[in-house]
């Protein structure tokens, strides 16, 4: 919601896990099905479907795993862990082709995107509605606080850089993060990878692209270490420590 919305488009590029029911068009022996599914683990080529919102160009997607959970007649229940942007409908179709009988996707449910899973914190429309009523009618915030998670939850899987209070406001205005502003960081920060820039209070300031890996960041005494790609915190939340003359015309 609100400012937190800006985080999500960066999160949707993380891996996905789906539960899927594939319907075969003719019966096939179980071991054959399992064998073919195993063949699809790894890098596969896919052309986006006709009604897709991206360019229809052959692209490579990685399938991390396909677990066949149950086979009942022509229906195959499987759990697929794959890279973002994998078309499961297409995958089912292709598995059907290799099996030689044809297949289509009968049902699909995503159970995991980046930090979001189906088991934890999953909220129904009814629960959300009840929580809003509890606040509006009875002034009770408890439910809504349970139903709505802080935006920091959405970046819990990202590498993190914790910065000085004095470095916060310039980042909020879109300035890059300089080495002296860094206090500590997680060792999984990679050069070119996304990171969450955090305050010492644990607030998300921005999502940024790291310009060096964690160990080099610790050694750096000056220079830019990360560039914000999406600022979340409102400017003015922390006091301003930077000189305005350098930023004339940037608002």
């Amino acid at each position: 919601m609100g400012r937190a919305r800006n985080v999500l488009q960066h999160i949707i590029h993380s891996d996905k896990t789906y539960v899927c029911v594939m319907a075969l068009h003719e019966a096939v022996p179980e071991d054959k099905i399992r064998e073919v599914c195993r063949e699809f683990v790894g890098d596969i080529y896919q052309k986006p479907p006709l009604k897709a919102s991206v360019e229809r160009r052959l692209r490579v997607r990685r399938i991390f795993s396909i677990e066949v959970q149950e086979i009942i007649g022509r229906l195959v229940l499987m759990v697929i862990h794959c890279e973002a942007g994998t078309y499961i409908r297409k995958l089912c179709h292709d598995i059907g082709e290799v099996l030689g009988v044809g297949a289509h996707m009968a049902e699909l449910r995503r159970i995991h995107t980046g930090p979001f899973t189906e088991d934890e914190n999953l909220v129904t429309m009814h629960e959300l509605h009840e929580a809003v009523i509890a606040l509006r009618e009875y002034g009770d915030e408890k439910l809504l606080r349970k139903v709505i998670l802080p935006v920091e939850y959405a970046v819990r899987n990202l590498p993190k850089i914790y910065i000085r209070d004095s470095a916060v406001d310039s980042i909020c205005h879109g300035a890059p993060l300089a080495a002296p502003g860094v206090l500590h960081l997680t060792d999984d920060v990679m050069k070119g990878g996304l990171v969450a820039i955090m305050t010492l209070k644990g607030e998300l300031v921005a999502i940024a692209r790291a310009l060096m890996r964690a160990h080099d960041m610790v050694e750096a005494s000056q220079g830019i270490v990360a560039k914000p790609v999406r600022v979340i915190m409102k400017p003015g939340t922390y006091p301003r420590h930077w000189k305005s003359s350098k930023f004339v015309g940037k608002g």
């Binding site: 919601m1 609100g2 400012r3 937190a4 985080v7 999500l8 979001f116 899973t117 934890e120 914190n121 999953l122 909220v123 129904t124 429309m125 959300l128 606040l135 915030e141 809504l144 606080r145 139903v147 709505i148 998670l149 802080p150 935006v151 920091e152 939850y153 959405a154 209070d165 916060v168 305050t199 209070k201 644990g202 607030e203 998300l204 979340i232 939340t237 922390y238 006091p239």
Partner: peptide, 21 residues
């Protein structure tokens, strides 16, 4: 200034919130 994520006033909590819907 600032505010730890679990102590935000409710309006701010909503504005800076996500729902796993």
């Amino acid at each position: 200034y600032g505010c730890p994520p679990d102590q935000r006033p409710i309006e701010q909590h909503i504005d800076l919130g996500v729902i796993n819907l």
